[in-house]
Design a protein around this nucleic acid. Structure first.
Length: 486
DNA sequence: TAATTCTTTGT
DNA sequence: CAAAGAATT
């Protein structure tokens, strides 16, 4: 009789996507509370499914994150089921095999995620399968925060005020201590067979020392940040040589931690941490939220100029310059340090992201979409909303964007934000012995200073691929031309 | 969340 | 005639 009663409860499929956590997971919580046995499933969808290609750096992360998720499910007497193929086909197969009558998941907000989800929901409901989606990937649903006239926000500051005024969100949910899993577990593919790890193993060598993928790593990083770095964040966050930022972005990108959990961790600290530091950190979380808000309401943000005036801009297509930028061989130390940090660590400090992006778009006049694609492939935190919105912000084509004529001077940016040159020296070893005076402008150093530092410009370190002052004039002239044409 | 050039101000 | 401030890109 007991087994009969048990079998009468049909399992629920818990479909994991970019929400690889048990903590504050609304779909998991609902599945747990439903009392049905759970089948935790991750689907490796083909890029053609509209999910966009997975970058190589993030593929590395995903591999380790899925391992971590499987481990924590195992601690709760569960195992993650891995399957590849079109999501709907995989779900149908698992439903058939397991007798599941329900599929729960947390919503995505990028254009392809939305369309895949909508389609799947319709198809499953046709089959009388309960398909329920949940929030939690964002602090608020993008349709909830709207201007007084009912339109989406296009400017960050009013958006931030609305977010502040929206009141505290629901407190984050704790992970269920124990899960009830379906007795009939469908066969799983092996993670190894997905070949997510890079074929050149030495590429990701430094990733292992720097990062701990998985939700436990995310929670530890959050605690360490709140304990050690949040105090002084406002002041220190702009200096890339300092360990001052949260480095939570890759954890957020794959949903190993929820924004509500992060928000909650910065509550009740006012006697230890100045309010200004907390506000500035929360404002960065709000930028992510704003990027998703924009992408949700303006899906073309992902690949087209949000402001179509830029459609007529005459981009240059110079493979040599693009290659020099990607490899960190532009001859501008702060740019090269950033691009090499990206390659080595799968991550770049935010201040430096703005500098290298400005350099690609304005000094080299290369299309922001080429930069965006490179970041997507090399960043462990590649995120469809943040990446596109931020590149358009620098390009001047985005919503509430930096004006095109705001052109970063790589020497001044370096001198202001890396005043001792420590960041450059950490990532550009050939400039190791150059003194602080010329570390951001080696091309202006006298021969004696270069000799002393063992540098031969054009041999041990490149000469600048463009002259910044004339590149600036060229960019402004090109911008003026598109403006006049419009 | 800039940089540069032009203009005014204080000594 | 520096330095601060405004305007311009």
């Amino acid at each position: 009789m007991a087994s009969l009663a048990k079998d009468a409860i049909k399992p629920v499929i818990l479909w994991f996507r970019r929400d690889l956590r048990l903590d504050d997971n609304q779909a998991l919580n609902a599945a747990h509370l439903s009392g049905r046995p759970i089948i935790p499933l991750y689907i490796n969808e083909p890029a053609s499914a509209g999910t966009g290609p997975l970058g190589a750096a993030q593929a590395w992360w995903l591999h380790h994150s899925l391992e971590a998720l499987d481990r924590s499910l195992h601690e709760r007497q569960g195992r993650l089921v891995l399957a590849s193929g079109e999501a709907l086909e995989v779900l149908r197969a698992v439903i058939k095999k397991s007798g599941a009558k329900a599929v729960f998941w947390n919503r995505r907000y990028d254009p392809s995620g939305i369309s895949v989800d909508t389609h799947i929901k319709q198809e499953l409901e046709k089959q009388a399968i309960e398909a329920r989606s949940f929030g939690g990937q964002l602090l608020h649903e993008p349709s909830r925060l709207m201007t007084g006239s009912g339109t989406p926000y296009r400017v960050y500051t009013p958006f931030w005020r609305a977010l502040e005024g929206a009141g505290e969100a629901e407190p984050p949910l704790e992970a269920p201590a124990k899960l009830r899993l379906a007795s009939q577990r469908p066969a799983s593919e092996t993670l190894k067979s997905w070949k997510l790890l890079p074929t050149k193993p030495d590429w990701a060598k430094d990733f292992t020392d720097l990062w701990t993928p998985g939700e436990q790593g995310a929670r530890e990083r959050l605690s360490a940040f709140v304990e050690e770095e949040l105090k002084g964040y406002k002041e220190n966050r702009d200096y890339p040589a300092k360990p001052a930022t949260s480095m939570l972005s890759p954890h957020l990108a794959l949903g190993e931690i929820s924004p509500a959990r992060i928000w909650d961790a910065t509550r009740g600290l006012s006697n230890r941490v100045p309010a200004a530091d907390i506000v500035h950190f929360r404002k960065e979380i709000a930028w992510r939220e704003f990027s998703y808000h924009l992408l949700f309401h303006f899906p073309r943000l992902a690949s087209e100029n949000w402001n179509d005036r830029f459609d007529g801009f005459k981009w240059r297509y110079d493979d040599g310059d693009f290659e020099a930028w990607r490899r960190g061989m532009t001859g501008y130390p702060i740019v090269d340090a950033g691009m090499r940090q990206l390659w080595r660590h799968g991550w770049m400090h935010n201040r430096v992201r703005m500098i290298v992006a400005s350099f690609l778009i304005k000094d080299l006049m290369i299309d922001w979409r080429d930069g965006e694609a490179w970041f997507r492939d090399t960043l462990v935190d590649a995120d469809p909303a943040n990446n596109a919105a931020s590149w358009q912000w620098v390009a001047g084509s985005g919503a509430d964007a930096s004006p095109f004529f705001r052109i970063f001077n790589p020497m001044l940016q370096g001198e202001t934000f890396d005043p001792d040159g420590d960041y450059v020296r950490a990532h550009v070893p050939e400039l190791q012995r150059l003194g602080v005076k010329y570390i951001h402008r080696p091309f202006e150093a006298p021969k004696s200073a270069l000799d002393e530092a063992g540098i031969i410009l054009g041999q041990t370190y490149p000469k600048p691929i463009v002259d910044h002052a004339s590149a600036r004039d060229r960019a402004l002239a090109a911008y003026k031309a598109t403006k006049d044409a419009a």
